[in-house]
Amino acid sequence: MVAMSQAVGKAVISLCTGLEDAEKVTVAFLVAVGAAEQGRTTLMFLTKEAVRLATGSVATGVACAGCPPLADLVARYAAAGGSYLVCPLCFDAKALSAQTLVANATLGGTVPLWQWIGDDPVVTFSY
């Protein structure tokens, strides 16, 4: 069993997979929700196909029997204060509109990612 301590610091979950691998997306959101709900300042960095998840109603469905609905995880993530940084190169390559971004999403690449991290200790996950 993993020892639990008071959650402090930041968490970054990097996700490059979209709904073509719904189980991987679900796992990434479970990790992000867990971090955010435990009080960590949490950012999901979305690249490649994952950028679509930050637009309107794309993040839907259930990945597997027993998995929570993705829409529920997205709502919990937002309610816990989680945010998204969406790769603008990937977003533009898919001809998506910035007006479709969810409220807790911002277009930004690696420089804004490093600025967000700053000098703080950060736990990272990549999917």
Score class of each variant (00 low, 15 high):
P112G: 08
G82V: 02
S14F: 08
A80M: 09
K94E: 00
I117S: 03
A65E: 08
V123C: 06
L85W: 01
T106I: 12
V122Q: 15
G9W: 09
R76N: 13
A36Y: 12
C16G: 02
A35I: 05
F125H: 11
C64V: 15
V58G: 08
T100S: 04
A35Y: 04
V8D: 03
V62D: 09
C87I: 13
C90K: 07
T100D: 09
G34T: 04
A28D: 04
L19D: 06
L53P: 01
Y127A: 10
L19G: 08
A50C: 06
A36R: 02
M1R: 01
A32G: 14
F125R: 14
K48S: 09
R76Q: 14
G61T: 00
G34Y: 06
G118H: 04
G61W: 09
I13M: 02
V102N: 04
A78W: 00
Y84P: 11
C64D: 10
S83L: 12
V33Q: 02
A63C: 10
I13N: 06
E37H: 01
D92P: 01
K94N: 06
V27D: 00
G18N: 04
C87S: 04
A36L: 12
V31G: 01
G82H: 02
M1I: 03
F45V: 15
A50Q: 11
C16L: 14
V12T: 09
T106C: 08
L85D: 05
D119N: 03
A105H: 03
V8T: 11
A36E: 06
S5K: 03
G61I: 11
F29C: 14
T47P: 00
S14D: 08
N104W: 01
E20H: 12
P69C: 11
Y127T: 13
T47N: 13
T60R: 15
A32K: 13
P88K: 07
A80L: 07
A22G: 12
L85I: 07
M44Y: 03
A98P: 02
S126W: 12
Q99L: 10
Y127W: 01
V122E: 00
C67Y: 05
T26I: 09
G56L: 02
V51A: 03
C90F: 00
Q38N: 06
V111P: 07
A95Q: 03
M1F: 00
